[in-house]
């Protein structure tokens, strides 16, 4: 699979150990961490220790620690809220452990996303759905559908800006409905055209 699509995601190129470890190993590590979180959460200092390990992970991967905080920034107020609520309902130890564990898991998952090319993750998905073959799931089709979805993001974004420009040119309104209806109708027509192209190019073969 080509490297091209990886430039669309959050992946950051590098040559560290974490970049070289297989996608499977990293994902299994994440699952193990998630499973262990129930046990880890009962000791607040253990949570902080694991969080420290994740910080080390970012440094090993060659990322600044700021990149880790960037993963957590969108949920920072929710984390503060959770800390206060857990402290208030239980004790201060849980006020640290519960939001700390969430931050650890999110930061660790972010590390996997940042160090694993998207094509490697798609390969994992395609292989992982292999056993579902007997239920009528075609793994190759799953992979192609993912690629098609990724491909549609810039198409629809381009469509949205065209519709927006037309709306400003014609009516100068900011009505969401006057934007969304033409966008969706054009998207439906584009989907028809894409469907035609898929059929013409043998997608169903």
């Amino acid at each position: 699979m080509a490297i091209g699509i990886n430039t669309l995601g959050l992946y950051q190129q590098g040559s560290s150990v974490l970049h070289r470890v297989s996608a499977w190993a990293k994902l299994i590590g994440l699952v193990v961490l998630g499973a262990a979180s129930i046990w880890l959460q009962s000791r607040w200092w253990l949570v902080l220790a694991v969080l420290g390990l994740v910080v080390v992970g970012y440094l090993v991967a060659g990322f600044p620690v700021g990149l880790m905080f960037k993963q957590l920034r969108p949920m920072i107020w929710l984390l503060v809220f959770i800390a206060v609520m857990n402290w208030w309902s239980f004790d201060w130890q849980r006020g640290i452990a519960v939001p700390g564990m969430i931050a650890t898991l999110v930061a660790a998952a972010g590390l996997v996303t940042l160090t694993t090319p998207m094509s490697a993750l798609i390969d994992v998905v395609v292989r992982a759905v292999g056993p579902l073959r007997r239920f009528g799931v075609d793994p190759e089709r799953v992979g192609l559908t993912l690629m098609l979805g990724i491909r549609c993001v810039p198409v629809v974004a381009g469509l949205a800006s065209e519709v927006r420009e037309a709306q400003i040119a014609r009516t100068a309104t900011h009505s969401f409905r006057a934007f969304a209806v033409p966008l969706l109708v054009r998207a439906l027509r584009d989907a028809d055209a894409i469907g035609d192209a898929l059929v013409a190019r043998g997608f169903d073969d």
């Binding site: 584009d190 013409a200 073969d205």
Partner: peptide, 30 residues
Amino acid sequence: KKVRRLAGFLFTDPDTQIIMPTVAEDVAFG
């Protein structure tokens, strides 16, 4: 399906007939 294998189709809007994310992947799709 046999007819489509014999006959390729070029559409008006190139944007809607590109299936794969990169140039080489799209050409290889068929």
